[in-house]
Each structure stands twice: as C-alpha cells, then as structure tokens.
Amino acid sequence: MTAGRPDRPPLLELRGVRAGYGEVEVLHGVDLVVPERCLFALLGPNGAGKTTTLSVIAGLHRATDGDVVLAGRRVNGATADQLARRGLCLVPEGRGIFPNLTVRENLLMATHTGSPIADVEARTFARFPRLRDRRGQLAGTLSGGEQQMLAMARGLATDPALLLLDELSMGLAPILVEELYGLVAEVAAEGVSIVVVEQFARMVLGVADRAALMVRGRVEAQGGPAEIEGALSGAYLGQ
C-alpha cells in the first residue's frame, strides 16, 4: 500500500513553497510529494516549519511563493473552508476542539463538510465509546486524551481524502499516544492518505510508509522510514 499508480499525479505535492509570519520567513522553499494511500510522517526538530507547512497545505496560511498541488490541481488561493469541504482535514496542534461547546456540538461542527450528524455521531461513538457518555459535557472539561479523541473524531468520521495530523502526542501519556497511533494506522489501512507531523519521531516511524525530515524551513531528506531514522539524531541534536 505504499505508492500510488505512476500514471496518476500524487495526492499532494508542494513545489518550492515559501511562507512566513510578517517579515520572518519560516519556509524557505519546501518540496514534498505525498503519494496516494500513504501514511506519511513529516519529522524534524521544533522550529523546522512543520506546523507552518501543514497550515499552508490546509489553506490557513498563504504561501508567498511556490505551489500547493492537490491531486494535480493547484490550490494556492483556496481558503481553508473550501479545502475542508473538498475532503482535506487538518487536526491542528494542541486540541483541535471548541472548548466552550459540548461534545455533541463539536460533532455538529464536523457536519459542515456534508456528513449527516447521525453518521458522524454513530461513527465517533463506535470508535470512542467514552465520548458517548460525555455527549452533553463541555469539551474543555474533558481529559487531555478525550479531547484529542474528539479532535480526531472529525478526521475519522467525515471520510476525508487527506488527513493531516499535527502533534497528536503533545502533552499526552505515552500509552495513550501509542493507542492513538494504532488508530491512525488502522485508518490508513482503510485507504485514507495521512500526513502526520510529529516531534517524537520514533513513535511514527514504526507505522509510517514514507517520511520526510525538515530542518530550518527546508526538507533535508525524503524516503523510507529506515533512511530517515538514520538522519534523525544529527538533525535534532547536531551529533
């Protein structure tokens, strides 16, 4: 289930993408190819620009130069909500939930992409039975793990074509992180393409099909998990 067929364009391609905040340029020309049906790990030390890369892909942040190509179509100008309705789903770093809305209302927001609420609830509760008991509770009062489940529920229940996950593990107990990545692998096996951004590289290299290593706003290496593994500690600690 690694690469897509060669006659079709890759699901996601970045060509020389530059972006920044105000005067500070963070991405200095990022090139990235994510094939179809692939669990892709985007790794790198912090400050490398991983989160910014995801924001650019999802349309939250505008690239100052370069192209973002989704399934062969250039989508540079598209807004985040347009992309979301076309099947791109980003679960942002640090709890992608609305804390002052109840669990049910959070799920209601996921229906903006077109799935009926009954479907979203059924699929979410099937996967995370704990959330069913907390339907009426404010999402901000859930535990960290439950919040992350709720955030992921949107990605899992709305059938995205491309799922982007940013730092699932942030602030969670290792056992829970392992559980979440088990789920990610399951979803990938169903054929959803997934890009995972993760600081704890070894965690995801175990489940990824392909990986890329970002350092200082550029992609340093792209390839199979084993190739990337070797380059890691040099990039992180300068050994």
């Binding site: 993760e198 704890f200 593994e229 050994q239």
Partner: peptide, 18 residues
C-alpha cells in the same frame, strides 16, 4: 548533554524504534 540518553528520548520519543 548531547550524549545524555534521557535527552535523546525527550527529543525523539521512547517509542518503538523501527
């Protein structure tokens, strides 16, 4: 610090090495 194991795992995670 560069050769401290605790530091390495803080950065790379203790998960399953591939």
């Amino acid at each position: 610090v560069q050769h401290d194991d605790a530091v390495l795992s803080a950065y790379l995670g203790a998960g399953r090495p591939a």
